[in-house]
Amino acid sequence: MSGQLPEALDTVAALLGRLPGVGKRSALRLAFHLLERPREEAVQLADALSALHGAVGYCTRCGHLSTGELCEICLDPRRDRHTLCVVETVPDLLAIEATGEFGGLYHVLHGVLSPLRGVGPGQLRLASLVDRVGSGGFSEVILATSISVEGEATAAYVQRLIHRTPQLMLSRIASGVPQGSDLEFIDQGTLGRALRARQTL
């Protein structure tokens, strides 16, 4: 069937089909939708997409979204520079920010250890974490990876990487958080409690 489609439409459908959660059929439906809508809408989307990578990048220090070299959080003088919170993803960081319970700095790993998916330490921002912590200045590092098997394994691995000193405390968010759910889906009250009730490792 798709062989009979004009090439341009077929290409758009194939590219949309690469997006997470978009199957072959819905990709085609979206492509048709773009074709049927006014031309300007498609152009607007195309322009926004081509500007995306140029306009938004990642903070070179913490891995948060940023339009410059350092993100707003890293540049904010009011943040507590002695506390570091290690999270899996940017949405996790945003979820913790939304609780208003945390005023320190972050380190985004951009993933989680999973041998099943072929993700090892090399694919995560671990070397920069070790450097950051090793250069001193932090009195507490909070491991806020999710309470899933993968999040626990990642936290345990980070715990082995970071050399504890009398000046540096390592802690883990409390595990009252429901099984298998990522931080993003936990309501803010629960996440705030998990942060407050963190346990020293």
Partner: peptide
């Protein structure tokens, strides 16, 4: 956890992962 450890065993055998990683999964 068992599935992750089994995947890691195979990755270590294939030379794609470091066997010190096993300690993390053994503990869990």
């Amino acid at each position: 956890t068992l599935s992750q450890r089994n995947a890691l065993l195979r990755a270590v055998s294939a030379g794609d992962a470091d066997r010190t990683m096993l300690a993390v999964y053994d503990e869990l």
